[in-house]
Computed example of a mutant assay.
Amino acid sequence: MNNFREAVDDCGLREVAFEGYRFTYDNGQAGNDNRQCRLDRALCSDEWLNLFPRAKLIHLDREWSDHAPIKLILSRKESTGANRQKLFRFEQIWVGEEGCEDTIRSSWNDDEDLLATLARCAEGFQKWKGVSIGKIMRDINKKRRRLTALNEGGRSVTEVRERRKAVKEIANLLKQEEIFWKHRSRALWLKEGDRNTKYFHRKACQRKQGNYIEKLVDADGREHVGFEAISGIARDYFL
């Protein structure tokens, strides 16, 4: 360890400031057998720190591994997106949820126009809501806050057992998140269980960008931009 510190000093490196629980390693044992220490860190030069003065190292929560993942953030990004009315979509994660089939039965009518029946189903689902990605993320965040408290707490047999339970619950929620983004991405050639959530999310974002209409040209050859103007041209075209 002394040799490591000397090498760091010789190279003129310094540690990036971190946030979160101070220890990044835990052997997962209970009671007096438990060992914790900070093994994982980020080092940088003064020149690098001048380029990224707002850099932060985040100690994330340990889940399956003995080591806590660390995340280097170079700067804080601010959201600049504009809000639009969201279209209704049936989510794959609703299948099998209690109340999903009942919602369809109560809304469906074979004697009525199909479009009207589908619209009533959509209205029924919006009232029922079921499992949404927002709820999944809120539950994940809630479970991870609990996991943070357990990681920083004691190491009794009961607490270690409770931590393992929390890890399993988070894994189940992450599975639901993966299914959601897979459905949105339309990347059906990948099997569920691959835990490719970031890939599915990226594909969904690519689809959203590809579906985005920047402008439309009306019958007189004039270009129109903006949500209201584009919506008006599309509506007039099909009416």
Rank of each mutant, 00 (worst) to 15 (best):
A122P: 12
H183F: 07
F88G: 01
N141V: 02
G193F: 11
C37T: 09
R138N: 12
V160H: 02
N172W: 07
N196Q: 11
G99L: 11
L239V: 05
R164A: 09
D61L: 01
L49H: 12
L39P: 02
K71D: 07
R155N: 15
W64S: 14
K56A: 03
I104G: 06
D40N: 04
R105H: 10
F23P: 00
V217Q: 13
Q29V: 04
R184N: 14
A204F: 07
R186L: 14
R195W: 08
I93L: 08
Q126A: 11
N34M: 04
G154A: 06
N27K: 02
Y237M: 10
E214Q: 11
R89C: 07
N211G: 15
S65P: 09
D61Q: 11
R84W: 13
K135T: 05
K56V: 12
G193H: 09
F200Y: 06
C205A: 07
T197E: 03
I230E: 00
H183C: 10
D61P: 01
D46R: 05
I170H: 02
D66S: 05
R76P: 05
E19T: 08
E152I: 01
K77N: 15
D26V: 00
R41M: 02
S185H: 10
R84E: 11
A42P: 10
R144K: 02
L51I: 15
G221L: 04
F18W: 04
I104H: 05
I93M: 07
D102P: 04
Y25H: 03
I233V: 04
A17H: 09
A122C: 04
R144F: 00
E91K: 06
C205N: 11
A82R: 12
C121T: 04
A119R: 15
W108M: 07
K129A: 07
T103E: 07
I104Y: 11
E152L: 05
L190C: 09
T24H: 00
H224R: 00
I179K: 14
N83V: 06
C11R: 06
Q29R: 15
E159V: 12
A171P: 07
